[in-house]
Design a protein around this nucleic acid. Structure first.
Lengths: 101, 101
DNA sequence: GACTTAATTTAGAAGTAGCTTAAATAACAA
DNA sequence: TTGTTATTTAAGCTACTTCTAAATTAAGTC
């Protein structure tokens, strides 16, 4: 539960929701945070059983365990939608400010 | 979301789930924590819109806003059940230890 | 007004979460 | 072996959360 309380982890969870992704892909997508930070969050998610890990060569692939997520899926989708809404709102405010410069 | 991540707040939420309760009732039920701590948690819950407040005289009554909780209800019930399970498990371990003394 | 009861606010301490940088591991290639 | 790439671990820092104790507000009573 505390696992999905973190916005950062929700962001990561969304990335590995549909498809398996390597730690590197995830880290370079997130971008506003260091690789170790991503790695640490991946571990938290893995330890709470919310994602699975598969190693292959030097790569590690992560994927959301939607079975384990159960009823949290609904909550997550709701929060992702809300996050998008906030982003749009921020963008609009930004545009509004620009217009008044 | 961060609001229900705290075990303390989940405990409080369960108390005000079925019926309205005054801050005092809640605080004296929780017991292993000071009144101000309860009061602060109530405020967090109220600010996230998860509970409602009704003032009457010197009393303030709180109640879970089940509408606002929406899909979180399922998750909460699951966690409460898990909490109970943990309690039972602890009790059984305790009993087992006693038997071997 | 002075007193009591109900509850909150404030101030500060202790613990924890999430981040960063630097160092370490692990698999593979030359 | 040495080097390279992918990723994690370690150590340390800062900010936030949750708690306590003390002070404060607010409503009602004498």
């Amino acid at each position: 539960m505390e696992a999905i309380a973190s916005p950062r982890r929700r962001q990561i969870l969304r990335l590995v929701w549909g498809a398996e992704r390597s730690a590197g892909e995830i880290a370079s997508t997130v971008r506003d945070v260091s690789w170790p930070a991503v790695s640490q969050n991946l571990r938290v998610l893995k330890n709470s059983g919310l994602i699975t890990e598969r190693r292959q060569g030097t790569h590690r692939y992560y994927k959301a365990d939607r079975q384990a997520l159960g009823p949290l899926e609904v909550v997550l989708r709701q929060m992702w939608a809300r996050d998008l809404g906030r982003l749009r709102q921020l963008a609009e405010e930004e545009a509004g400010k620009k217009r008044h410069d």
